[in-house]
C-alpha cells in the first residue's frame, strides 16, 4: 500500500524498475527525469560503480499534484541488476506498489530475463505479496537489436497472466519509456482503488 503521511499531507507510491543487469533500468529513469518538467520532479540520486553499473539504487521523486487534500507523489527506484546484489534488490523491493520489469530483448539474454523475473517474484513473495495480483508491467527494452526475443516468449515460459501489460521500448531514444511509466502508474492507482481499505 502507498505511504500516507498525515504530517505532510502526502500519499506516496513506490514504483521499482526491476530486471537483469544492463537491461536499461537506469536509462529508463534518466529519460523520465529529463522528460518531466522541473516543477514536478526532485533531484535524481544515482549510486553507481566506477563502471557506471548501479551499485545500490537510482531514485527520484515525482510530485503529481494535490488530490483530495493530499499531495500525490510517486517515488521511482531502480535495482542493481547484477546477480550478486540480491540483498540490495530485496531491500529496495520492500514496500513497492508496482514494478516495471525491464527485459533485455537480446536473444542471448533470454535466460537472464527469466532468472531475474523469478527472483523478483520470490522477493515479492517474501514480503507477502502475490505477484499475480500485483501491478507489474513487462517492458521489452532494446527493440533496436537485429534479432530480438519475440513478444510473448517470456510471458509463455514464465506463465504470466494474459492481461499482464506489455510494452516495447528503446530506452536510449526514449521510445516506449513514458508509455511504460503511464501504464504502471495507472496500474498502481487502479490497484490502490481496488484495495481501497489497505
Amino acid at each position: 500500500m502507498p505511504h500516507l503521511d498525515l504530517n505532510n499531507r502526502q500519499l506516496v507510491f513506490k514504483i521499482v524498475y526491476f530486471g537483469p543487469g544492463m537491461s536499461g533500468k537506469t536509462t529508463n529513469l534518466l529519460f523520465i527525469h529529463k522528460k518531466i518538467f522541473d516543477k514536478y520532479k526532485g533531484d535524481m540520486v544515482i549510486l553507481d560503480t566506477e563502471e557506471e553499473r548501479t551499485l545500490f539504487f537510482d531514485f527520484f521523486p515525482v510530485s503529481l499534484g494535490t488530490v483530495q487534500g493530499f499531495s500525490l507523489k510517486i517515488h521511482l527506484y531502480t535495482i542493481p541488476g547484477q546477480v550478486f546484489y540480491e540483498a540490495s534488490r530485496r531491500i529496495i523491493l520492500e514496500g513497492a506498489d508496482g514494478v516495471v520489469f525491464v527485459a533485455d530483448s537480446c536473444i542471448e539474454r533470454f535466460d537472464d530475463n527469466v532468472d531475474m523475473y523469478r527472483r523478483m517474484t520470490t522477493n515479492l513473495g517474501s514480503y507477502g505479496v502475490d505477484p499475480t495480483s500485483f501491478p507489474i508491467v513487462l517492458q521489452y527494452n532494446k527493440r533496436d537489436y537485429d534479432e530480438v526475443i519475440p513478444l510473448g516468449q517470456l510471458e509463455a515460459i514464465l506463465e504470466l497472466p494474459d492481461d499482464l501489460p506489455v510494452t516495447e521500448s528503446i530506452a536510449t531514444s526514449g521510445k516506449g519509456v513514458m508509455r511504460t511509466l503511464q501504464l504502471i502508474s495507472k496500474e498502481v492507482i487502479r490497484n490502490f482503488q481496488l484495495d481501497g481499505s489497505a
Binding site: I36, G176, Q182, S185, I189
Partner: peptide, 26 residues
C-alpha cells in the same frame, strides 16, 4: 478518501504529467 474521485483525479494527473511525446515515433 473517496476512492472513485481519487482514481479519476490521479489518472488525469498521470496523463498530464507523464506525457508521451514525439520519441514514440522514433
Amino acid at each position: 478518501i473517496s476512492i472513485p474521485d481519487f482514481k479519476e483525479y490521479a489518472l488525469n494527473l498521470i496523463d498530464r504529467i507523464f506525457v508521451i511525446g514525439e520519441e514514440e515515433d522514433a
